[in-house]
Nucleic acid binder design. Structure first.
Lengths: 198, 198
DNA sequence: TGTAAGTGAACGAACGTTCATTTATCTTTG
DNA sequence: CAAAGATAAATGAACGTTCGTTCACTTACA
């Protein structure tokens, strides 16, 4: 009776939107140029998205969902703390290295007013729950100092993301050339483990 | 012979630009609305700024310079490591708490294409040099494990900024309500010191 | 053949920027 | 020490362009 939607079109739109935002910023993304780049009519975009904001929010949600799935790979709740943390570091680093534009976009989006309307939706998601259980078990097993989950996350992962960010930019905080090496990442993980272990 | 510029106008323009960007994002900032908000003519903006990009770059540079000055307050190169780090944590936290919009804007700007043209200018600045000397002295005095400056910065400050960011948003990584307490900050600093001390 | 996907052209609004003009304040002059 | 003259600050209106979005219409499939 009715014609099916061509999901390739939606994907093409999202893909080019991501690329443009990373290269030109949010104010460099126009619907008409995006349509041209994705090879569709401007009106087609409005079949798949309510408006520009909806497109941006969906773009973020698609990648966030995908990312949340990725970082839990090979993670076993019965793992000891150090192994589990190392696995999560590897997953997060692999993802960011493989998809630097996606990582850049997701972090950039965080500073956007649109982010506020997404934040509320992610409450009670599977990834957050799994991490929470992992941390609580490690504390119970005396492999991790007792602390609020936010303190844990900040000490455990913020240093990694910072290194990955500088690596993407190619400069450190002083504007000097910077390239992240495996050795540096291992050294940083070791320091983080030293901080967190009892 | 000539009429002097009214620097209050420039300040008003920059101030309202900052506020708008934080509230509406970069694509929410238009020159005509900005002029109206700052109480000047659109043409006046172009006396003080070459174009929109120049305005944004100058806005960033003004606040970055000011911030770099702020975080070095009360910092003595002869301080022992733990005291020096604690001082820098207090300075950075104070600034972000006192000027949350400025901090938000500066971090947001970092993800913008414009940031690339600023990064190169900051090479060899006084703040970077002072921090470098502080770290090298601490290593020499055996108060700090030897490590690249980027690893040091990431472990030393990334957790703090992460907590401050969540505090500003009012949510943690799982979308739950979050408010940063002094106790949490002290606990995090203690963990960081544990990681960095030999 | 009915229905929704998909389109190109067009809408008014808003965009960044500039132009022609006026205004304010400085230096010079008498 | 006031008036004249010079210069750049400051302006409101307007420029052409591009913006997000929609409309009237065609196309393709169930």
């Amino acid at each position: 009776m009715m014609r099916n939607r061509d999901e390739n079109k939606k994907d093409a739109i999202l893909e080019h939107a991501l690329k443009t935002i990373v290269q030109k910023g949010f104010d460099g993304l126009s619907m008409q140029k995006l349509a041209k780049a994705a090879g569709v009519s401007p009106a087609t975009i409005y079949i798949y998205f309510k408006d520009r904001d909806d497109l941006l929010v969906q773009l973020f949600e698609v990648h966030m969902t995908n990312y949340f799935g990725y970082i839990m790979r090979g993670l076993d709740p019965e793992m000891d703390f150090a192994t589990g943390l190392k696995t999560q570091w590897r997953n997060r680093a692999d993802f960011v290295m493989k998809h630097p534009d996606v990582a850049h976009f997701m972090e950039h989006f965080t500073y956007t007013p649109l982010h506020y309307q997404v934040v509320k939706k992610i409450k009670g998601n599977a990834t957050g729950n799994a991490m929470s259980r992992f941390v609580q078990k490690a504390i119970r097993d005396k492999q991790l100092v007792a602390m609020p989950i936010e303190v844990y996350w900040s000490v455990a992962f913020a240093p990694l993301y910072n290194l990955l960010r500088w690596n993407k930019i190619g400069n450190n905080m002083a504007g000097e050339k910077f390239k992240l090496t495996d050795e540096m990442m291992e050294q940083t993980l070791a320091l983080v483990l030293k901080a967190l272990k009892p």
